[in-house]
Amino acid sequence: AVSDRLIGRKSVVMEAISPQNSGLVKVDGETWRATSGTVLDVGEEVSVKAIEGVKLVVEKLE
């Protein structure tokens, strides 16, 4: 599936994300709604860990 190619990809937070609120990330020039178990600020680099419905699950790059 097209979405499977996103797992493991680097992306950049475009709208802040917290455990309570989804935000936005940009992956390969496309904007996606995303969630995370931690707070992520605009501009942080993250990695796509999973896809749940139409949202990406991301975490901060170490």
Score class of each variant (00 low, 15 high):
Ala1Cys: 14
Ala1His: 12
Ala1Leu: 12
Ala1Val: 11
Val2Thr: 11
Val2Gly: 12
Val2Lys: 11
Val2Leu: 14
Val2Asp: 11
Ser3Met: 15
Asp4Trp: 10
Asp4Phe: 09
Arg5Glu: 07
Arg5Cys: 12
Arg5Met: 08
Leu6Phe: 08
Leu6Asp: 01
Ile7Met: 07
Ile7Val: 09
Ile7Gln: 03
Ile7Cys: 08
Gly8Leu: 05
Gly8Ser: 04
Arg9Gln: 09
Arg9Gly: 05
Arg9Lys: 11
Lys10Gln: 08
Lys10Met: 12
Lys10Phe: 09
Lys10Tyr: 10
Ser11His: 01
Ser11Trp: 03
Ser11Gln: 01
Ser11Thr: 12
Ser11Lys: 00
Val12Lys: 06
Val12Gly: 02
Val12Tyr: 10
Val12Glu: 05
Val13Asn: 00
Val13Gln: 01
Met14Arg: 04
Met14His: 06
Met14Asn: 03
Met14Pro: 00
Glu15Asp: 05
Glu15Ala: 11
Glu15Gly: 06
Glu15Tyr: 08
Glu15Val: 12
Glu15Lys: 12
Glu15Met: 12
Glu15Arg: 09
Ala16Gln: 10
Ala16Pro: 10
Ala16Cys: 11
Ala16Met: 11
Ile17Tyr: 03
Ile17Gln: 02
Ile17Pro: 02
Ser18Asn: 08
Ser18Met: 06
Ser18Val: 06
Ser18Thr: 12
Pro19Ala: 06
Pro19Arg: 05
Pro19Cys: 08
Pro19Phe: 06
Gln20Met: 12
Gln20Phe: 12
Gln20Tyr: 12
Gln20Asn: 12
Asn21Thr: 12
Asn21Phe: 12
Asn21Met: 13
Ser22Ala: 13
Ser22Cys: 15
Gly23Val: 03
Gly23Tyr: 10
Leu24Thr: 10
Leu24Ile: 10
Leu24Gln: 06
Leu24Glu: 05
Leu24Met: 10
Val25Lys: 01
Val25Gln: 02
Val25Gly: 00
Lys26Ala: 11
Lys26Asp: 10
Lys26Met: 15
Lys26Pro: 01
Val27Asp: 01
Val27Phe: 06
Val27Leu: 11
Val27Thr: 04
Val27His: 02
Asp28Leu: 09
Asp28Ile: 05
Asp28Ala: 08
Asp28Asn: 09
Asp28Tyr: 05
Asp28Val: 04
Gly29Cys: 12
Gly29Asn: 09
Gly29Pro: 02
Gly29Leu: 05
Glu30Ser: 07
Glu30Ile: 11
Thr31Cys: 15
Thr31Asp: 06
Thr31Lys: 07
Thr31Trp: 10
Thr31His: 08
Thr31Asn: 09
Trp32Thr: 00
Trp32Asp: 00
Trp32Ile: 01
Trp32Met: 04
Trp32Leu: 04
Trp32Ala: 00
Trp32Asn: 00
Arg33Trp: 11
Arg33Ser: 12
Arg33Met: 14
Arg33Glu: 14
Ala34Pro: 01
Ala34Gly: 05
Ala34Ser: 04
Ala34Tyr: 04
Ala34Thr: 04
Thr35Cys: 13
Thr35Gly: 05
Thr35Arg: 06
Ser36Tyr: 03
Ser36Ile: 01
Ser36Leu: 03
Ser36Gly: 05
Ser36Thr: 02
Thr38Asp: 15
Thr38Pro: 00
Val39Pro: 11
Val39Lys: 11
Val39Phe: 15
Leu40Asp: 01
Leu40Gln: 05
Leu40Trp: 07
Leu40Arg: 00
Leu40Met: 09
Asp41His: 13
Asp41Lys: 13
Asp41Pro: 08
Asp41Leu: 13
Val42Thr: 05
Val42His: 02
Val42Asn: 03
Val42Tyr: 04
Val42Ile: 10
Val42Leu: 06
Val42Glu: 06
Gly43Pro: 01
Gly43Ser: 03
Gly43Val: 01
Glu44Asn: 05
Glu44Ile: 08
Glu44Pro: 01
Glu45Tyr: 13
Glu45Ala: 09
Glu45Val: 15
Glu45Arg: 09
Val46Trp: 02
Val46Ala: 15
Val46Met: 01
Val46Ile: 04
Val46Gln: 02
Ser47Asn: 10
Ser47Cys: 15
Ser47Gln: 14
Val48Met: 03
Lys49Asp: 02
Lys49Phe: 08
Lys49Trp: 07
Lys49Ala: 08
Lys49Asn: 06
Lys49Ile: 15
Ala50Thr: 06
Ala50Pro: 00
Ala50Gly: 11
Ala50Tyr: 08
Ala50Ile: 04
Ile51Cys: 05
Ile51Asn: 03
Ile51Gln: 06
Glu52Thr: 09
Glu52His: 11
Glu52Met: 12
Glu52Leu: 12
Glu52Phe: 11
Gly53Ser: 04
Gly53His: 05
Gly53Cys: 04
Gly53Thr: 03
Val54Met: 14
Val54Leu: 14
Val54Asp: 15
Lys55His: 15
Lys55Asn: 14
Leu56Phe: 03
Leu56His: 02
Leu56Gly: 00
Leu56Lys: 00
Val57Cys: 06
Val57Lys: 05
Val58Tyr: 00
Val58Thr: 01
Val58Phe: 00
Val58Trp: 00
Val58Cys: 03
Glu59Ser: 08
Glu59Met: 09
Glu59Ala: 10
Glu59Asn: 05
Glu59Trp: 06
Glu59Arg: 05
Lys60His: 07
Lys60Tyr: 05
Lys60Ile: 06
Lys60Leu: 07
Lys60Asp: 02
Leu61Cys: 10
Leu61Asp: 08
Leu61Trp: 13
Glu62Tyr: 13
Glu62Lys: 11
Glu62Pro: 12
Glu62His: 12
